[in-house]
Computed example of a mutant assay.
Amino acid sequence: MPFLELSLRCRESEQPRYERALDDVGALAVTMLDADADTSNEHAILEPGVGETPLWDSITLTALFPHDADALLLLAALEAFDPELDWTQAGFRSVEDQDWERAWMDQYVPLRFGERVWIVPWNCDVPTEAQTPEAAVVRLDPGLAFGSGTHPTTALCLRWFDALAADGRLQGQTILDFGCGSGILALAALKLGAAKAVGVDNDPQALIATHDNAERNGVGDALTVHLPQDEPPAATYPIVVANILASALDALADLLAARVAPGGHIALSGILDGQQDALLQRYAAWFDDLYVSIDGDWVRIDGVRRAT
């Protein structure tokens, strides 16, 4: 059965209002895409922060309606629901029914980060280059909910773990993934040789996704997940990664610093280029050897916790 599809580009800050309006007038499904991303590369999807939805500058919203819906009546209803929203750029087309989830997944291909880390969608075969004992292969389904694909913020962290493993600093360690989302970083660390991983997120659905992904990747016994209030308050870790937002990294600096054991390593990501100076100054209170890595418009800061 065909559907009537509405598509509209909007700012990220407006997305919840547009989505509520579409739901109110009877959309059968609403999806979100990064309007500026090339979905064939690793920058297509953002790994969100703690309990955050994807934070892209511009979003393409796509909504499906029954094929016999009247486009003009839909627009009138949408304008009535929230008169301040601009629907003048909305486009309509008729689309044939298909397996939407499979069509979405088929856009993605295996990606390599550093020397050893591979993120391979479940619908893809593991590449020949990744079929070696040294390869750290994480299998995930592409999706929007928790960033199963990778944005530069996540790519920066995956490369950091790859470098730690190459230096032998990850082997047998316990890592904290603060703002774990899909668990992609924790899973990569375990595949690279970490003994245990702890995932923390304030969204219960993220914890479910992380746990399920760990089970499917055969490392469920090595990973535990917690809401922030349930994590042991005095716990420290030799390796901590926080791929969230710059504002959250600033607000949580004391907490994150307290989670890193003396001599331990931290990586902070989710930082736009230009935001790093304030965070460098903030984290210099606890960390030495602070180093900045840049991928496009995004930044990772890593450092070593000094003894107190």
Rank of each mutant, 00 (worst) to 15 (best):
L192I: 07
E129M: 11
L33K: 09
A76R: 11
A222Y: 07
D289W: 07
D34E: 12
D125W: 04
A222I: 00
A234R: 08
V299W: 04
N213V: 07
L227G: 06
P110N: 10
R17L: 15
G303Y: 00
L245W: 02
S7F: 06
S40V: 10
V240D: 00
D288W: 11
D36A: 10
T53V: 15
A257N: 00
L4D: 09
L185F: 10
L190W: 01
A278K: 14
E79M: 03
W104Y: 15
A257Y: 02
C124P: 01
A253Y: 03
A21R: 00
L164E: 05
A267Y: 02
A194V: 07
T39L: 14
A165G: 12
A235P: 01
L85M: 05
A163P: 03
G179P: 03
A69T: 04
V120P: 01
V299N: 02
V126I: 14
R259F: 03
A80T: 12
I301M: 01
Q275R: 10
D177P: 05
P152R: 12
V292R: 11
W87Q: 07
P121I: 02
L187F: 11
Y237N: 08
A90D: 06
R11V: 06
E115W: 00
F92Q: 02
D24W: 14
A195P: 10
A130N: 04
M1F: 13
H151G: 13
G143W: 09
A197G: 11
G193S: 13
S40N: 13
A194H: 09
L33A: 14
T154M: 10
G220M: 11
D288V: 12
A136M: 09
L144C: 11
V304F: 03
R139Y: 06
Q171Y: 13
H151K: 12
D57Y: 13
L72C: 11
Q89F: 04
E52L: 13
L187C: 08
D297H: 14
L252S: 09
L268G: 05
L55D: 08
L55P: 09
V126E: 08
A44N: 01
H43M: 04
D277T: 14
D254H: 03
R216I: 05
L64N: 04
S269N: 05
G181Y: 00
L144E: 13
G199N: 06
T308V: 14
G49E: 04
R169E: 15
E84G: 14
L170W: 09
L187N: 10
D221L: 12
Q15S: 14
L33E: 15
A21T: 05
W298E: 08
L74Q: 01
F146Q: 02
E129K: 06
R282C: 09
P66D: 11
D203P: 03
V304S: 06
W122A: 08
T224K: 13
Q131P: 01
T88E: 15
W298Y: 08
D125I: 05
L156S: 01
A284D: 13
L8M: 07
E129S: 11
N243F: 03
P204T: 05
N243C: 10
F92I: 01
H67I: 06
V240E: 00
I45Q: 12
A63E: 03
G143K: 10
W160R: 10
